[in-house]
Structure formats: structure tokens, C-alpha cells
Nucleic acid binder design. Structure first.
Length: 795
RNA sequence: GCUUGUGUGGCGGAAUUGGUAGACGCACCAGACUCAAAAUCUGGCGAGGGUAACCUUGUGUGGGUUCAAGUCCCACCAUGAGCACCA
């Protein structure tokens, strides 16, 4: 039988036998393994998907054999622009495109033998699913966590859509690469910024990989400092600045307001009005990219107004400049050119005074941003940074002109998309009542079934054109009203899908509390590093909110989060059609078999690191599998483990068990290769020896191992217990250790594992080559590290 | 610029706490089997020297700590990723 037939045979056996279907409840301990559900694109499954799905599959299969009730589900994240664009391009409805693509993906996944529980499958585009996404949005709204606001948003002129900060990173549309511009739009927002501190603290209750935690901490961007009030000369108004360095207040020589700051027009003196107006207009035309590109060359205009420094009454000029962002802090700063690089650059350009208040640098050359003793600062003189900050904050608070303040970079979540292919936002606008939520019992609000779903020229959602759908009645007063035509971003559906997997067929709730209490947290979640600041953060926010209103049992529902490296093309570049380096998993399965592909992707390198594709290495893995098959001919009529192989078998069980649960898949495979080589070097092997190799290899290469195992008359591996090892038997009686003279390897000795130290020394000293190196030398000391090495120090 | 990861043979990569660097695999070379090829098996494989036993050198660079450093410390270089005027 060839491998394609064997693979199909076992895939059918597993499916018909319902081996991988998880039950809610029972005596077994639960274990929830999750891998990010894919976006079913037209391109089909990528070999990169295969890497992470295989890794998680290996853990799932191992944990099942260890007696856990394993949940390893799969579904589809199918709303969003790519499906819509694919549909527009191919002139089909997005729903049909998604259906088609899901079919392809699912077929590919099945051909690879992943042990997903397909009974729990769903797509975020299923009305039964998005009903609950909409329902949860209503909870956000009802708890005052969703609001509509007119905000300058990132706008992609090509896609004709609003982009989130995350999608518009670097001022470039993530999807099409066009330059993003700023546009005022009325958008639904979720109050994510108010969860900044909770999202930061919550990380302590997770076991995320350190780099993932750091990524999120960075994105949330907490900074601690103070708000300081500045009065304006000749006005009764004041403005507030945020600073992380209140200790440098005596060094402030001017202030800067963001061009959009509300006070600008009011305080600008008559002779400056024209120039200020011109500057503001110029800023509006710049997009984020241009603003940052110009970042070395500071621009700005004086307002002609003066601020009064609260600590010493000094009058300092107020400028406007776009290096101050309206969206962060208070939109205004005090400038301390002596101790801030940006302020320094601005002061140099506009010839403003630079006043040193901390010793340590040379302010004629650059701003000194380090710590040091304060000078020219009255009561702060002589203090260091930390002391001075604390003292200044005390002073500001005592004198009612400032206070301690924490700021975060993270903003509220812009939740609207002007697209067709997303969950409709279940809100209705009534002239009399304003925004009114739909009644929960009327959900789901279905997407209308129409042919016209291309984006409009005005940037409105295509839904706006469908008057039958838009026109409705107000749920509150019954008057004619209109539906919201924006849809949700595709991060919405993926923010809670892991909860739905716990109870996917529930028609009364998004998931029952019982189910969620049973499964608790996702034990092991794998996904891409690129989702650290997006999906994973949104999902945590969503869950924390649900927890706060009593709908989920834990504030964090994900315990371990790890991320895989990319599979690159053989030229070490990202796989892409244009580079012609794409490998299609279907071709590999057909030519080499699913098991070979799985073994290779686990063996190709460090799981967390990127690795280039190599068909030669893939062939090496095929050879390994062929070797395992050939070993069957060596089986003798004995039972148990032979004396020669017993130790290596126990060692391999130990190593494979450890490696598979610690993401060291490549060394798990290599230790199995070592075991197979050991079998090959033995004249014969017992049936039990062969069996244990098959069981250990099964999580990675499930089909061929089941087939070989069956031919020996054992029960199915998926019904077998994972082998256990005897620690005592992993230790050899004898070991060969190195002997060094002055740290250089000069020989080897073979000793008993528990050999007496004196005997080891004697053996080392009697080694022929060692003797040569000791001639005419005085032995200073002999260091013996049990089981590792002997080092003889000589003079 | 900041944050973060990575630098080990011709290549992918091992080296769990500082303890025989290069496991395992690929590629390559030689040999066996074969009429021949494929497949398979055996041996070799960091560099330099030596018939050999061995010796010298070697984990991006330069210092340091240690009996002992790929691993720890300091400085630097290269490269990937993320963020990017966040006060």
C-alpha cells in the first residue's frame, strides 16, 4: 500500500471512530490546545500553517495518550477585506468565496491528518456565530464602553476604507501599500484605552512568552510623569502639559502646543495670526508618514503669546509645532531643550535659550537626557533625577498647579469599517431618540443578500445603498429610523472565538458558564508574532470586559501563548507568488506523503525561529520514515526491551516527552532518528522495541506509525497510553568523560557512573596522553566534575 | 533613533544548570552491492600541520571573570523584526 492510501485509510478510521472529539466534562483532566484559526484566503493552506498546526497536533496527540481530555478545535476567521476583495475580483459573492475557500482549506487540513475536533467547527461569518459577536457589541454599548465619535482616522484612498492604527502602521496601508491620509469620520469606538492598566497588569496572570509580553507592554506604552498647569500671560486661561520629567521644570524655556490644540486661535496675537493659520493648513495636508519623514527637520510658528512657568514665574514663549501630537498626553508640552533631544533640535533652529538644570552633559553640543545632580533649580539643587521628580510632584500638588499623571500610548479601538463583508453593527439611528441599540431578541442582524457590495466613492459602506435594509423603525419609539451601515473590523469575531469552541452549538448563550468553567483557560495558544499587538491584545481586552460584567470565569482566558517562526522560501525570503518561491503543501503531500511533510516541518529548525524551505532536507525525512518501515524486518521473537537497547529507549522516551512539550520539536525528531539508528545497528529488535518507537513517533507522523503498529497486532496507537520511562534506566553504568590539562582536552577515560573520586583521579593521571602532558609539571589541583569532566591544573 | 531577536562547518541546526563544540539531518567525497543506474549499506567530512599517535587553531570582533566560556560581564560590528517626534 502506498502512503497516500495509508493516510486516507487512517484519516477515515479516526473520523469514523470519533477519536478526537472532546467532551465537556468527565473524569479526565482537561487540556485546551489552540492554534489561530486561519483566514481562508484564495491561496489555500500555506506550508507555514502546516508547521504550527503540526506542532500543536503533536502536543494534542501526546496529551490524549497521556490521558487528558484534549480540546483541539479549528474554525474560520472569514470576515474582512481580503475575502471581499477576492470576491470583487472574481465577481462572486464574498459568502460563496468564503465557502469555496473553506472547503479547500478543510480538505488540505484533513489530508495532513490534524486531529482537530471537527464537530466544533464554525466560521465567524455564520449568523449563529456573529449573532453573538453583535450581542457582545451591545453589551459594550450598554455598559458605556462603545461610543460614536468624530475622529481623525487613517484613511486609505485606494481601499476607500478607514484603517486602525495597527493596520496603518508606518503611514502605509497594510493591505495595498498606499500612503494613508487623515480624514475626519464619525466612528464607533470601544473604550480600550480605559483598560490600559488592566491589560498591563493582567500579563502577570499569563504565561505568555517573554517577547510576546514585551510586545504588548510596548504597545500599551505606559509612562509615568506629571501634568503641569501653565497660565497664559494676559489671559485668565491656562493650559496643561504632560511631562515625564517634572524635575526639569526650571529648565523650561518655551512651550509648544499641537497645531490642533483648542487654545491656539484664541491666544495667537494679531500679528502672528496669518502665519499660524498657514502652518495649521500645511499640517492638515501632511499624513503621518510625511510627518515622521520630516522628523529631523523641526518646523513651527510662534503664537506671540507667553506662558508663565509656575515654579519661578518666568515668561516663556508659546509655539505651535507638529512635533507635538494632539493625540497624546494633553497635546501640549513644556520644552526643556537642555535635556530633551527634540526640544534641543527645535531650540537650535529657532534660536531659543537652552538652560542647563542637570549636570552631566555638554549642552553646547547636544541635549543631556541622563541622570545627574540638579542645578539652577532652587529647592531641587543637589538632588538626583528620582528624588527631584518626587519632590517636584509634591510641590506641584501642594500648590495646586499640577499632579502626578500616568499616560498610555494605546488609544481607543476604532471599531467601524466602511465595508460590506463584516458583522453589521446592530445600532439604529432615530431622529428623536438618537442612537438606539437593537433588541437582543432581534439578533442576528443579517447581512442583506445582494449583488452590490463594492465600496462606494464617498467612503460610505456599501450597505448604505441598500435602502430596504437601511430603513427600519426605532426600537424605542417606533418612528422611522435608519440602521448603522458600518460593519465591524475582522478583529471582532476573533476576539472571542476561543470561548465559542468551548460550547459551539449553544443557541441560548455565546457559551455557557458551565462550559467555560470546565475548560477554563486556553492552556496552549500558538500564533504569529504579528498578532501580538493586535488580535491578542483585542482578545484580552474583550475577555476582560466580559469578565467585568460577569460573563466569563477568568479575567485572562489564555494561559500560555507562544509563536512560531515563518517558513521562508528556499532563497531565505518570504514566500510569495511574485518571487516564485512558494511551496504548495498539496504537492508535497502527494509526492512525499503527509507524514514526511510533518516530520520535516518539525525537524527543519528551531520552532520559534524562521527557517528556509529545503526539499533536500525533506527527502532526508522521507529516508528516515523509510528506515522506520524497514526496521520491521528486524523484529525477532523476543519480548520486552533487550539489555543493549533498554537504556537508549528510556532516554528517548524521556527526551521526546520533554521536547514535545517544550517546543523542541527538532530535537525530538533527532532523538528518534538516533533511536532508529541504534535499532539498525542491532542485529535484531524485539516487537516491543519496535512498538515503542512507533508510539513515540506517532504524534509527528501519525499515519504510517498506526499502519505499522496495526500490522504487528497491537491496538491502535490513538488508544494507547503514552510510554513512561524509568529514570534509573536512563543512566548508563559507565560513562566516557574528558580529561583536561589546564582546560585543554588531552584524553578520555571510561568510568563507572558512581565511581569514587579518588579512582577517577587515578585513572585520569594514568592516561598515557595525560602523562605526557604532566611531565616536568607540578600538579596544583585536580577538579573532578562527576560524570562530566576532569581538569588537572598544573604549573 | 528606541525596543527586541539572531550571529556556531559548504547548508539547516545541536550543546536543559559554565564542564569532551559541531548531536541529528542535508550536501559532498571514497568504498561495497550492481552489467549499469537508482535504492540501500560502510567509512570520511571546521581549518592548518603530521605517515601516524597527536599538535595548533576555532562558536561575529576586541577585552574581562573562571581550573574551565558558544554559554557569564563590558564595549563594538553585522543582520532580521517591531515601533517610530509618545514629551
Amino acid at each position: 500500500m502506498n502512503f497516500n492510501e495509508i493516510e486516507k485509510k487512517w484519516q477515515k478510521i479516526w473520523e469514523d471512530g470519533h477519536y478526537f472529539e472532546a467532551k465537556n466534562g468527565g473524569d479526565k483532566e482537561k487540556y485546551y490546545i489552540l492554534v489561530e484559526f486561519p483566514y481562508p484566503s484564495g491561496a489555500g493552506l500555506h506550508v507555514g500553517h502546516v508547521r504550527s498546526y503540526t506542532a500543536q497536533d503533536a502536543i494534542a496527540r501526546l496529551k490524549r495518550m497521556q490521558g487528558y481530555n484534549v480540546l483541539y478545535p479549528m474554525g474560520w476567521d472569514a470576515f474582512g477585506a481580503p475575502a471581499e476583495q477576492y470576491a470583487i475580483k472574481n465577481h462572486i459573492h464574498p459568502a460563496s468565496a468564503v465557502k469555496e475557500n473553506i472547503k479547500t482549506f478543510k480538505g488540505q487540513m484533513k489530508s495532513l491528518g490534524f486531529s482537530f475536533d471537527w464537530t466544533r467547527e464554525f466560521s465567524t461569518t455564520d449568523p449563529e456565530y456573529y449573532k453573538w459577536t453583535q450581542w457582545q457589541f451591545l453589551q459594550f454599548y450598554k455598559h458605556n464602553m462603545a461610543y460614536k465619535a468624530t475622529v481623525p482616522v487613517n484613511w486609505c484612498p485606494t481601499c476607500k476604507s478607514v484603517l486602525s492604527n495597527e493596520d496603518a502602521a508606518g503611514g502605509v496601508c497594510e493591505r495595498c501599500g498606499s500612503a494613508v491620509i487623515q480624514k475626519e469620520k464619525s466612528q464607533w469606538m470601544l473604550k480600550m484605552a480605559s483598560y490600559s492598566e488592566d491589560l498591563l497588569k493582567g500579563l502577570d496572570d499569563t504565561n505568555f512568552a517573554e517577547k510576546v509580553k514585551l510586545g504588548q507592554i510596548n504597545w500599551i506604552g505606559k509612562s509615568v510623569g506629571a501634568n503641569v498647569d501653565f497660565k497664559i500671560k494676559g489671559h485668565d486661561k491656562k493650559f496643561t502639559v504632560f511631562t515625564t520629567r517634572p524635575d526639569t521644570l526650571y529648565g523650561a524655556t518655551y512651550c509648544v502646543l499641537a497645531p490642533e490644540h483648542a487654545l491656539v486661535d484664541e491666544i495667537t496675537i494679531a500679528s502672528q495670526k496669518e502665519e499660524v493659520k498657514k502652518y495649521k493648513e500645511a499640517c492638515l495636508l501632511k499624513n503621518d508618514l510625511e510627518r515622521t519623514e520630516l522628523n529631523k527637520d523641526k518646523t513651527g510658528v510662534a503664537t506671540g503669546a507667553y506662558a508663565i512657568n509656575p515654579v519661578n514665574g518666568e515668561e516663556i514663549p508659546i509655539y505651535i509645532s507638529d512635533y507635538v501630537l494632539s493625540s497624546y498626553g494633553t497635546g501640549s508640552i513644556m520644552a526643556v531643550p537642555a535635556h530633551d533631544e527634540r526640544d534641543y533640535a527645535f531650540a537650535k533652529k529657532f534660536n531659543l535659550p537652552i538652560k542647563e538644570v542637570i549636570k552631566g552633559g555638554d549642552i553646547t553640543k547636544e541635549a543631556y537626557t541622563g541622570d545627574g545632580i540638579h542645578i539652577n533649580s532652587e529647592n531641587l539643587n543637589g538632588l538626583n533625577k528620582e528624588e527631584a521628580i518626587n519632590k517636584m510632584i509634591e510641590w506641584l500638588e501642594a500648590n495646586h498647579c499640577g499632579e502626578k499623571k500616568v499616560n498610555y500610548k494605546m488609544r481607543d479601538w476604532i471599531f467601524s469599517r466602511q465595508r460590506f463583508w463584516g458583522e453589521p453593527i446592530p445600532m439604529i439611528y432615530c431622529e428623536k431618540c438618537g442612537w438606539v441599540p437593537m433588541k437582543e431578541e432581534d439578533l442576528p442582524l443579517l447581512l442583506p443578500d445582494v449583488a452590490e457590495y463594492e465600496p462606494t466613492e464617498t467612503g460610505e459602506s456599501p450597505l448604505a445603498k441598500i435602502t430596504d435594509w437601511v430603513n427600519t423603525t426605532c426600537p424605542k419609539c417606533g418612528a422611522p429610523a435608519k440602521r448603522e451601515t458600518d460593519t465591524m473590523p475582522n478583529w471582532a469575531g476573533s476576539s472571542w472565538y476561543f470561548l465559542r469552541f468551548m460550547d459551539p452549538h449553544n443557541t441560548k448563550e455565546f457559551a455557557s458558564m458551565d462550559a467555560m468553567k470546565y475548560w477554563q483557560k486556553v492552556d496552549w495558544y500558538n500564533g504569529g508574532m504579528e498578532h501580538t499587538a493586535r488580535h491578542l491584545l483585542y482578545a484580552r481586552f474583550w475577555v476582560q470586559f466580559l469578565y467585568n460584567i460577569g460573563l466569563v470565569p477568568n479575567k485572562e482566558m489564555i494561559w500560555t501563548r507562544v509563536s512560531h517562526g515563518m517558513v521562508l522560501g528556499s532563497n531565505n525570503e518570504k514566500m510569495s507568488k511574485s518571487k516564485g518561491n512558494v511551496v504548495n503543501p498539496d504537492d508535497i503531500v502527494k509526492e512525499y506523503g503527509a507524514d514526511t511533510l510533518r516530520v520535516y516541518e518539525m525537524f527543519m529548525g528551531d520552532y520559534e525561529q524562521d527557517a528556509p524551505w529545503s526539499t533536500d532536507s525533506l527527502r532526508g525525512c522521507k529516508r528516515f520514515i523509510d528506515k522506520v518501515i524497514r526496521l520491521k524486518d528486524k523484529i525477532n521473537d523476543k519480548e520486552g526491551y533487550s539489555k543493549e537497547l533498554e537504556s537508549i529507549i528510556h532516554k528517548t522516551i524521556k527526551k521526546v516527552t520533554y521536547d514535545l512539550t517544550h517546543m523542541a520539536y527538532n530535537t525530538a525528531v533527532s532523538s528518534l532518528m538516533i533511536l532508529a539508528n541504534a535499532y539498525e545497528n542491532n542485529k535484531t529488535i524485539t516487537k516491543d522495541e519496535y512498538h515503542v518507537l512507533l508510539v513515540l513517533l506517532n504524534p509527528i507522523a501519525p499515519h504510517i506509525t498506526e499502519e505499522l503498529n496495526e500490522s504487528l497486532g497491537y491496538k491502535k496507537i490513538c488508544e494507547t497510553k503514552w510510554p513512561e520511562y524509568d529514570e534509573a534506566k536512563t543512566v548508563d553504568d559507565e560513562v566516557t568523560i574528558g580529561v583536561q590539562v589546564n582546560g585543554k582536552l588531552r584524553g578520555e577515560i571510561t568510568i563507572k557512573t558512581d565511581e569514587d573520586e579518588e579512582v577517577i583521579k587515578e585513572k585520569a593521571l594514568n592516561n598515557e596522553n595525560i602523562k605526557r602532558h604532566l611531565e616536568n609539571k607540578e600538579i596544583v589541583k585536580i577538579i573532578v566534575i562527576k560524570g562530566k569532566i576532569v581538569n588537572i591544573v598544573v604549573k
